[in-house]
Design a binder for these strands. Structure first.
Lengths: 130, 130
DNA sequence: AGCAACTATATAACCAGCTGATGGATGTCT
DNA sequence: AGACATCCATCAGCTGGTTATATAGTTGCT
């Protein structure tokens, strides 16, 4: 039933949250671990581990925050941007193939709903009151 | 970014795949472990473990397949149906709250796209060619 | 300046949920 | 009957998360 989501997360690649964290980094620029953890809805230790993974994979870097000795700023590397773009293209390709098989009206309906869907999910991500 | 999905899977409850497996059971009736694994896109040992969890939680039962001594048929229990319904209601409530905050046109657009979205995801779940 | 309280990150120990490899029991085909 | 295929369970190992706690740095008050 939610199998379609699994199809978009092929094994051996980036996990869902590493992917979305890289995405956040491109949007928000260098960010603190705590901020990233909040944005992704995982714990701070969880985000620390995630960043460790990204860093050893060469997809992100930690630099000390010049204004706060406790914090470090995480940024995406060029390689990270490449991987992110490749992954995005791959997913787009997977979806496009199925999308093209739909009827014209179905395609139009989905297209028309996309902005609304974005607003809905943004709303949901923003309000943590389970 | 995909944080909204995490919001729909509160901790301490059913995991995403246990939930969808229960759902599949209500739709398909008593099923073999192998079939369920295929449908959910996880491995057979993974599904065995999942069914163990459901069974010890009293949400599903294993009965030997009368026509095949190797196989067992998994079925959802009444309690399973209750839990599934409760979970579904909870998710519906979460979504409805955010949905209601959207503009009228946004709501109409999402509503109109729902059948198309269902067809798209069904298509994606059915084709495993990563 | 000095100290208490707070904050940012890291570490440790643990758990859930998956994977591939393998084996035993049963079914099927010739 | 024998060879092969299929169904499921078990095992060891991995990934990605959790909570509790420690460490280092910052801030505010006196």
């Amino acid at each position: 039933m939610l199998t379609w989501a699994r199809r978009l997360t092929p094994p051996g690649g980036l996990s869902a949250s590493t992917y979305t964290t890289l995405d956040t980094l491109t949007l928000a620029g260098p960010s603190r671990i705590t901020d990233l953890a909040d944005r992704e809805g995982i714990s701070q230790p969880g985000m620390t581990a995630l960043i460790n993974r990204l860093e050893t994979a060469g997809l992100a870097v930690r630099t000390p925050d010049p204004t706060d000795g406790r914090a470090s700023l995480i940024d995406i590397t060029d390689r990270g941007r490449e991987v992110l773009a490749a992954r995005r293209a791959e997913r787009a390709h997977l979806i496009a193939a199925r999308f093209g098989a739909l009827s014209e009206p179905d395609q139009r309906a989905l297209d028309a709903a996309l902005p609304a869907f974005r607003r809905l999910t943004a709303e949901m991500a923003a309000t943590p009151d389970i």
